[in-house]
Simulated assay, not measured.
Amino acid sequence: MSQWWKKTLGQSLNSSGVSSFLNVAAREHHLALPHLSVPDFRWIDWSELERLGFRGVVLDKDNTLTAPYSFSLFPSLSGSLVQCQAVFPGKVAVFSNSAGLYQYDPDGSEARALEESIGGIHVIRHGLKKPAGSAEEIEKYFGCPASNLVMVGDRHFTDVVFGNRNGFLTILTEPLCLSMEPFVVKQVFILKKILSMYVFSI
Rank of each mutant, 00 (worst) to 15 (best):
A135L: 12
I194Y: 11
I118H: 01
C144H: 08
D62W: 04
E136G: 13
F142C: 08
E139A: 12
E174V: 11
G163M: 04
S16T: 14
F71W: 11
T64C: 12
L31H: 05
G100F: 02
G10H: 04
S196C: 13
Q11V: 14
Q103Y: 10
S179R: 08
E174I: 08
R155E: 03
S98W: 09
L195T: 01
L31V: 00
A67R: 15
S72E: 14
I118W: 00
F157C: 02
G143R: 05
K193F: 14
V57W: 01
D40Y: 01
G79F: 03
S201E: 05
V160S: 07
I171M: 06
S196Y: 10
H126F: 09
S37W: 07
L49I: 06
K129S: 07
E28N: 12
H35P: 05
K193Q: 15
L169I: 09
K192R: 12
D105N: 06
Y102V: 15
T8R: 15
V199S: 09
K91I: 05
M197W: 14
R55P: 09
G120H: 05
I44Q: 02
A111E: 02
E50I: 00
V161C: 04
S134T: 08
F168Y: 04
Q3F: 12
L49W: 02
F41M: 04
L49Y: 03
L13T: 06
C84N: 00
V123D: 06
V152R: 07
Q85S: 09
S179Q: 08
M180D: 09
F21P: 07
K7L: 15
S37T: 10
R27S: 15
W46C: 10
T158D: 01
I202E: 12
H35M: 09
M1W: 10
G79M: 01
